Amino acid sequence: MTGLIATVLPDEDTPAPALIVNDGFFPEIDPAVFRKQHRIRDAVTPDRAREALIAAMLAVYRDLAAWALSHRAGGTRKLDDVRRSDGSISTIDGINTLVLLYQRAVFTAAKAEVVERYRDVDLTSAGQRKAEDLEPSITELRRDSIHAIRDMLGVTRTTVELI
């Protein structure tokens, strides 16, 4: 006896979400890549995912504005062209590592917002316990975003002061 295996094919009539155009220096952000890499479920609408990505882009930009301005002042037109102090461009899989770090900073900040916002629905007590289990996840996502930004800036991830 043979079983039936159902395959769900992507709807060809559904267009891929539009890229979020950035300021020219920082790269565009692809919501489809965000959804795939961070396993964003269909319960999160495309508009909501886009809103979270834009909020994350704004937050990351705020942290990198002075750094980006100094590179622009030095004649660098886009993040993909930023070179290390020895004049080389560091790449992984053919992509400038700064672009990868920027994308990580934005994606993890956006994922933290999505997880946080989707907790605020009316929950049963079992659902509330599950939401409380997500708390470290939100903190870890925000930490990962900050680490990516600090890596871009070339500063240490930890600040220690003597009291």
Rank of each mutant, 00 (worst) to 15 (best):
D13N: 09
T14L: 14
P15K: 01
P17M: 09
A18V: 09
L19I: 02
L19Y: 05
I20S: 01
D23P: 08
F25R: 06
F25N: 07
F26K: 10
F26H: 14
I29F: 07
D30C: 06
D30I: 04
P31D: 12
P31W: 15
A32Q: 13
V33Q: 08
R35P: 01
R35G: 05
D42G: 15
T45H: 08
P46I: 10
D47E: 15
D47A: 14
A49M: 02
R50Q: 08
R50Y: 05
A56P: 09
A56H: 11
M57L: 14
A59L: 13
A59V: 12
A65D: 11
A66M: 03
W67G: 00
W67L: 01
S70Y: 10
H71K: 14
R72T: 07
A73G: 04
A73Y: 08
G75C: 03
G75P: 05
R83I: 11
S85V: 06
I92A: 06
D93T: 03
G94V: 02
G94A: 03
V99E: 11
L100H: 09
Y102L: 05
Q103C: 02
R104I: 11
V106E: 01
V106P: 03
V106K: 01
F107D: 03
A109W: 08
V114C: 06
V115C: 07
E116I: 02
R117N: 10
Y118M: 15
Y118Q: 12
V121H: 05
V121P: 00
L123I: 02
T124M: 07
A126F: 12
Q128V: 13
K130W: 13
A131P: 12
L134H: 12
T139S: 11
T139M: 10
E140I: 01
L141Y: 14
R142G: 02
